[in-house]
């Protein structure tokens, strides 16, 4: 079977295809992390400024600074109506009012960023003393966000897995294969294994390249901090470091990639047409995602079967069990499909 697997691999990935995959993934990763822009609702430069100031302070000094800054901003913003009426009634001169307005705008522009800093302070206060370090975490936060719905990984897996089954019919070699001793069930199982392994390898490549490019760009500073210190992960119950968290997430996602590949194999084995298989696979991936977006109360098992939740970004706890269960489900489904294709369905 190993030899047969080699030929099947050569059919699917022979020549320069692996190179193309790697190049596409590198370009995508470089493009993604070129300027790590996060979708947050506060000013990043101001946040960075605060964090760099706090990182140079001791814990007690930092705490004092945060509390005093909080009070200052609140009092400036809260005093607007009063200052306005004071100016209207002549209690305040134009110069004084202008000076206040300048302070007001400054405070207003800093308010949302400081709010994020304040939340970080509360996050860190729940950790042990040695972990209460203020560090710029938006890079790790964004890395987690970008690890979500990875369309490139899904797309590559789809494009390279579909031909594993559909090529035989498009090239009209299926007759020659089916009359051979090992040309039915054994060949089918070999293709399934190849599909699964390819999904795992493509996923591994995608996330490894992401890690590598991210590391080259930003380094892995503070990767040993607890994950709860990173914005958005404060409710995470896993006792794991930042690097450990993302590594575990990658493992989970690589398993999901394998599961996705199995799903695609099952569909292709039934449909046996390149374009129609791509359509059905894309529909099975896309529609549940839409249903989820429109109705968040929909049953999640629907999405775990279509493996989208596995490929969505998640700030919840590490979950290796669900992809394993889904992989097992899809293996069973594929075995049923194998039986169907070769016993019930004939030309």
């Amino acid at each position: 079977m190993t030899r047969l697997m080699y030929y099947e691999w050569y059919k699917a990935f022979g020549g320069f295809k692996w190179l193309i995959i790697v190049v596409i993934l590198i370009i995508k990763a470089v493009f993604t992390y070129q300027s790590l822009d996060v979708s947050v609702d506060f000013s990043i430069p101001i946040y960075r400024e605060y964090i760099s100031e706090l990182s140079e302070m001791s814990q007690s000094k930092a705490e004092k600074f945060i509390l005093s800054e909080n009070e200052r901003i609140n009092s400036v913003l809260g005093g607007y109506t009063e200052m306005e009426s004071a100016y209207s009634s002549g209690k305040l001169s134009l110069e004084e009012y202008k000076a206040y307005i300048k302070i007001y705008h400054d405070a207003k522009s800093k308010a949302s960023a400081f709010n994020a800093v304040y939340q970080k302070h509360e996050q860190l206060s729940m950790l042990s003393n040695e972990n209460r370090i203020y560090f710029y975490d938006l890079e790790w936060y964004t890395f987690g966000e970008y690890m979500g719905l990875d369309f490139f990984a899904i797309f590559l897996i789809m494009i390279f897995t579909v031909p594993i089954f559909c090529r035989e019919h498009s090239l009209n070699t299926h007759h020659l294969n089916m009359v051979c001793k090992n040309g039915r069930t054994k060949l089918h199982i070999t293709k399934l294994m190849l599909g699964f392994i390819s999904g795992l390898v493509l996923g591994l490549l995608a996330y490894s390249i992401d890690f590598a490019i991210f590391g080259l760009r930003y380094g892995f500073e503070y990767s040993d901090m607890p994950i709860q210190a990173v914005m958005g992960y404060s409710h995470n119950a896993d006792n794991v470091s930042v690097l450990g968290m993302f590594a575990a997430m990658s493992v989970s996602k690589v398993l999901w990639c394998g599961c996705l590949a199995l799903m695609i194999c099952g569909i292709c084995a039934l449909l046996r047409n390149n374009i129609i298989s791509v359509i059905m696979c894309a529909a099975l991936l896309f529609f549940p995602m839409q249903v989820l977006k429109l109705n968040e109360n929909s049953p999640s098992w629907l999405y775990s079967i279509s493996i989208l939740s596995g490929l969505s970004g998640s700030k919840e706890n590490i979950d290796i069990l669900t992809p394993l269960i889904n992989t097992a489900i899809w293996i069973v489904i594929n075995l049923l499909v194998t039986a169907t294709v070769y016993t019930k369905r004939r030309e």
């Binding site: 030899r3 047969l4 050569y10 059919k11 009209n172 007759h175 051979c180």
Partner: peptide, 21 residues
């Protein structure tokens, strides 16, 4: 019938030899 365009003749025969056990 079709054949695999990227395979050489000898590769094709080796592949089918595997398939035929």
């Amino acid at each position: 019938y079709g054949l695999y365009p990227s395979f050489r003749a000898i590769d094709t025969l080796r592949y089918f030899a595997r398939l035929k056990g």
